[in-house]
């Protein structure tokens, strides 16, 4: 059990660093950066008006949205979608405590199962938020989103489990996410078989990451040319702000987990030096974010059936082959 000092420590971690406050700062920074990249690719300047170089524009957008009246039509659900979205945001931010960004990371044997379960809350909350007000376009988007998740999530989970199993078998890391990240660099050089497993899982994990985050070419649930704004069509004011907040935190957490498992975690920093580990992990995360944004702004979009077929045809074999290699290697 936790004593009083540890409890205070956990509350500080949850609400300040690397929890709520730090995540808000990170959301502002990543959104500003993403919009600048999109602007550069589309021959625009991106945000310029609010703050130095437009850095505070995402914060201004957030404040504008949450200050609006919460308007719900007479057929819509009133409180529950807001509560569900807030809890889902809380779930993703709580997971920041199991990353090397935390100065006192939290871990447990087999915690990866719980982490995967908690990650799943966010798409469900997004779907619930979209369906909370009747709109045919939101309904179509949720159908597409669920088809995408069914086609991506199991294989993505298999890809995540590959380094966890390898580390658990060779380094006694108790199938824990944080503990695996401390040996993630060594998983690539254990043996030729482990290298093959890690390479396959890294490819599968990246494709799964793009699909789960609805990055092009897998953004058909929010295809604005067909479905207005997909999942976000009927949302406005504080509900849209919470949906965006949830999506943006997901955009931070999922690549962070990818960095922890496939890109060596805090390596070359010693994991016991938390601030150096945090800086290294953030730098690696920034590289992954840049690649994701470049892909997002330069790829066309799949039709739903094309996207789903691609995932079944390539992501599943790659990820499950990686998992089998990890089990028998």
């Amino acid at each position: 059990m936790v004593n009083a000092t540890q409890a205070l420590n956990l509350v500080f971690e949850a609400l300040v660093y690397p929890g709520l406050l730090f995540t808000i700062v990170l959301v502002i920074a990543t959104q500003w950066y993403s919009r600048k990249i999109a602007g550069r690719i589309q021959y625009r300047r991106g945000p310029t008006y609010t703050g130095p170089a437009g850095f505070l524009q995402p914060l201004a957008d957030l404040i504008k949205l949450v200050s609006k009246e919460d308007l719900v039509n007479e057929y819509g659900l009133r409180k529950s979608p807001v509560v569900v979205a807030a809890l889902a945001i809380g779930a993703l931010i709580a997971l920041m405590l199991v990353t090397p960004l935390a100065y006192s990371p939290v871990m447990a044997p087999y915690d990866i199962i719980i982490v995967i379960y908690i990650i799943l809350l966010s798409p469900l909350a997004l779907a619930y938020l979209a369906l909370s007000q009747p709109n045919p376009y939101s309904g179509l988007a949720v159908g597409r989103y669920l088809a995408l998740l069914i086609s991506a999530d199991p294989a993505y989970t298999a890809a995540l489990l590959t380094p966890i199993i390898l580390a658990g078998r060779h380094f006694s890391t108790w199938f824990s996410l944080y503990a695996t990240s401390t040996v993630a660099d060594r998983l690539w050089i254990l043996s030729p078989a482990s290298f093959i497993g890690m390479a396959l899982a890294a490819v599968g994990g990246f494709i799964g990451l793009l699909a789960i985050l609805m990055i092009k070419p897998f953004d058909f649930p929010e295809a604005e040319s067909e479905l207005y704004w997909g999942l976000f069509t009927e949302l406005g004011g504080p509900r849209l702000a919470l949906a965006f907040f949830l999506k943006f935190v997901e955009d931070i957490l999922m690549p962070l987990i990818y960095v922890m498992l496939f890109l060596g975690g805090p390596w070359p920093a010693p994991y016991s030096n938390w601030w150096l580990s945090a800086i290294v992990v953030l730098l690696k995360y920034w590289v992954v974010l840049t690649i994701i944004r470049l892909i997002e702004n330069s790829m066309p979009r799949y039709r739903p059936d094309q996207g789903v077929k691609f995932l079944w045809k390539y992501l599943y074999p790659i990820s499950f082959l990686a998992l089998i290699v990890a089990i028998i290697a």
């Binding site: 509350v11 609400l15 807030a86």
Partner: peptide, 25 residues
């Protein structure tokens, strides 16, 4: 390094943290 819990404590802890952060949001 870090705080190590057993799986049941971890679930309880994460549930508590989710409730705390969710309520704050």
């Amino acid at each position: 390094f870090g705080m190590i819990f057993d799986p049941y404590e971890f679930v309880a802890l994460m549930s508590g943290l989710i409730a705390l952060i969710g309520l704050s949001v």
